[in-house]
Write a protein that binds this DNA or RNA. Structure first.
Length: 381
RNA sequence: GUGGGUAUAGUUCAGUUGGUUAGAAUGCCAGAUUGUGGCUCUGGAGGUCGUCGGUUCGAGUCCGAUUAUCCACC
């Protein structure tokens, strides 16, 4: 089996279980990927990431290219060596950051001009520039440069983003050379099903034409442009059709989605991979995921609660620390509070996807789904 | 003991020549957070203005007494 070839190991309804090889180990789907934008999952060491069952870890091209710079990371031997994470890494292209962070973005057919949020430096990226940077960073999976339309946006705006993203997808694929890296195309199209399908078809054609010419194909697909402010149910009006329009022999990655119920629902629609800052960001602000829903650990009701965070949880935090102690840490602004809650929240999502995978392999995803939706915490998300 | 200062929200303080419902910061209570510019953001509760008395149409504000506390000097 060649690197990155996706093996479909089981199906249950539309839900899928599969795996693919990277140069840094096998990834099993469905899976959640912890986000480590600046080559670190904030507050968590690589050993701890392993301990809670992390597979792929994310890093961000936009941020790393400006600080400390792609050349420095290449000089360090690449991201794996630099951050001492020996598992798979995925770098987001930074397209999302360009459009969500910068206030002065100028697009043209050939590329994009924007100002660095770090020092205001004027930067220009073509798709080729972006591929060059991501190949220097050396992640196992890299994402095409794309344009993520905001929500709400006019249909015309979204369609232009679809067309531009497709044009850039083609150029990213042509510029992609490293054999030990997989390139994912990204589907755009906002909440319009026809534009989504147009985006999917464009990517499929681009990949096929490239492969027929003896070059690479996309080895997976990101589904971008969701979770940009719309109600959760709006995404599910189109997500299933979009996911299933993608090739069944490639992993499907719903970008930026991380609340537990949405993951369980999206797996049911045929999505394989997720990433999100939600578990770690909310952890730093004092929120914990649990089998009974979200818990705000700052709440006074935990002041004298010496029980573990979640009695059903097997994570290293729940096996040792009490709610009262965690509340104390969070209330005191101690960094250990955010660290411990991050470990717990990541474990929660990693474990949720591990259980989802088992359910698919057992051919019982619908039972798993219904059990989840009926559970105490489901409607809390 | 003498002289002077201070006393307003849990805390540190602001409050005009006396004038509507006495403010801020912080703390407290709660909510938010979705391809990470976030020690962040949004709400809420909380004060018989040390106490007693007086002046005045009206006192956190002026006067007297008293209590507490700080400083200086004996």
């Amino acid at each position: 089996m060649a690197l990155f070839d996706y093996t479909l190991e089981g199906e249950s309804g539309h839900a899928r279980a599969g795996s693919f090889e990277t140069a840094h180990g096998t990834a099993h789907t469905p899976m959640f990927m912890p986000v480590g934008t600046l080559a670190t999952v904030k507050g968590i060491t690589p050993d701890q990431l392993h301990e809670i069952g992390s597979q792929v870890v994310l890093a961000n091209t936009y941020h790393l290219s400006m600080r400390p710079g792609a050349d420095l990371i290449a000089e360090a031997g690449g991201l794996h060596s630099f951050m001492q994470w020996d598992g798979p890494i995925l770098t987001d292209s930074g397209g999302f950051q360009i459009f969500s962070l910068a206030d002065t973005v100028k697009l043209d057919d050939d590329g994009v001009n924007f100002a660095s949020i770090y020092d205001g430096a004027k930067i220009r990226w073509t798709p080729e520039d972006n591929m060059d940077i991501q190949q220097k960073l050396g992640a196992d999976i890299i994402m095409q440069l794309d344009q993520c339309a905001p929500y709400p946006a006019t249909r015309e705006f979204v369609e232009r983003a679809v067309d531009l993203s497709a044009a850039w997808a083609k150029r990213c694929l042509a510029a992609h050379t490293r054999e030990d890296q997989a390139l994912f195309g990204i589907v755009q199209g906002g909440m319009h099903l026809d534009l989504r399908l147009k985006s999917v078809n464009a990517l499929r054609e681009i990949g096929q034409a490239s492969a027929e010419a003896g070059h690479k194909d996309f080895q997976g697909f990101g589904i971008g442009g969701y979770s940009v402010g719309e109600d959760h149910d709006v995404m599910f009006e189109t997500l299933g059709d979009v996911a299933r329009a993608l090739p069944s022999n490639k992993p499907r990655y719903l970008m930026g989605v991380g609340n537990p119920t949405t993951l369980v629902r999206a797996v049911r629609e045929g999505v394989d991979m997720f990433d999100c800052v939600l578990p770690t960001r909310t952890a730093r602000m004092g929120t914990a995921f649990s089998s009974k829903g979200r818990m705000n650990m700052r709440n006074a009701k935990f002041k004298r609660d010496f029980e573990p965070l979640d009695a059903t949880c097997t994570c290293p935090v729940c096996s040792k620390y009490s709610r009262a102690y965690l509340r104390h840490l969070v209330k005191s602004g101690e960094m250990l509070g955010g660290i411990l809650l991050s470990i717990h929240n990541l474990h929660y999502l990693l474990d949720l996807m591990r259980r989802a995978r088992e359910a698919v392999l057992a051919g019982a995803y619908e039972d798993f789904y219904e059990e989840w939706m009926a559970s105490e915490g489901a409607d809390d998300y």
